[in-house]
Nucleic acid binder design. Structure first.
Lengths: 224, 224
DNA sequence: TAGATTGTTAATCGATTAACAATC
DNA sequence: TAGATTGTTAATCGATTAACAATC
């Protein structure tokens, strides 16, 4: 079993290797790759050691070979059909995101509950009614669903996805989803990321001479 | 010092408390709040213990009081001016995202390098040239920047942001950013999240009777 | 007082890192 | 052989969890 923290870094290594390959680099050391991926080389070697021994001592790694091995380990040598539910601003952006297609994901359908959106074409795909979910999942053997609806609709959508056989969900709605054992949910929450930054920013502000935090803290703090 | 893992969960607790308050709930136990936030109650109590003792033994937590304490700890009782650079599909979605405003963040400017976009209005804000960054950061005391550009432009944008005094960056571009000590970067990478799901999906596929992974694995695997 | 629930302790688990033997 | 670099070991660090004493 590969540790979860390692799994989360494999796509980063994959991207870094692709960037190296695009620059015509055929071989790299763990130091090179680590720096391209923004981690330290001990961690990189430890991570790669879970996959096998794909390097050569004294030499380094063959970029293409390692890239293939990591892609195979992640599972992106095959194509993954994906369905996106909720075609608001974010759904639009996701449908148009070229990084999906280029990394082994294929958006096979865009669904929305709003009749006004049905029939519109987004990123070359026609928006369909949410009720088509079952047929689409069956037809395309969809295993991964993306939720980009408002928070209030997210649990319903997740329930329906699970009922149709989807076992991996990427959730952009700001809601905690309850799903049965065996279904994976990953959550991307834009405002949570900003709040984490705000927390650290607030703590920096003490010594800063600029930035809103310093100004606001001075106003709030009293003792300033 | 509050552990980083705890900091990352505080916004989740904050959201759960807001949901409870919206439902008219005034008091909750650690068990109630933990389940609303999707964590176990031991972890929740441990997390809250880093902030202070805001509960009452035998009774639980006052929802509004705890909510305020967490908001104060995170720093979202004050307003954070934010600038978004890169007004493509994702930048549009971010500019329109109501979750920012409602959680203490105010988008004070939208910037793009593309002259064709300048002057357009997105979410009620006019898109300005990227070169206006300095003036905007100075005028609004911006401490947090959001990068939603293509990967190739991200490092340049980050460098300029740092030079202007921005010390927290939320990066949506699929690129590793190098920044000086003291600058925080958080990264949201849509395709990495999908790849992590694909990894786990691939491993489930063995026993599954449906899903693309099962089909593809059977085709690939040989031994099937 | 009895029941409920917090805040904290201590044990466990998982992740990171430096150092280095193995080996190209 | 000498230099370089991997893959692995072991120590350290941080996060999670169960259990329970404190106390409302």
């Amino acid at each position: 079993m590969i540790p979860e923290a390692t799994v989360a870094r494999l796509p980063v290594y994959l991207r870094a290797l692709t960037a190296l390959a695009d620059n015509g680099i055929r071989t790299c050391s763990s130091e090179d790759l680590a720096s391209a991926a923004g981690v330290n080389s001990a961690k990189l070697r430890k991570d790669l050691s879970y996959l096998g021994s794909y390097g050569t001592r004294g030499v380094g790694y063959d970029v293409d070979y390692l890239r293939y091995q990591i892609a195979r380990e992640i599972g992106v040598t095959q194509d993954w059909p994906v369905v996106i539910v909720g075609i608001g601003n974010l759904g639009h952006a996701l449908a148009n995101y070229s990084g999906f297609r280029s990394r082994g994901f294929r958006v096979v359908a865009l669904l929305d509950a709003d009749p006004a959106l049905i029939g519109q074409t987004v990123a070359g795909v026609e928006v369909q009614p949410f009720d088509d979910l079952e047929e689409i999942v069956r037809t395309h053997d969809v295993a991964i669903g993306v939720i980009a609806t408002p928070a209030f609709a997210a649990q319903d959508v997740a329930d329906r996805m699970v009922a149709m056989g989807i076992t991996s969900i990427l959730n952009f709605a700001p809601a905690v989803l309850t799903v049965p054992e065996g279904v994976d949910v990953r959550k991307v929450d834009l405002s949570i990321e900003l709040q984490i930054l705000a927390y650290h920013e607030q703590r920096k502000a003490g010594g800063a001479t600029q930035g809103a935090a310093a100004a606001a803290a001075a106003t709030d703090g009293g003792a300033a």
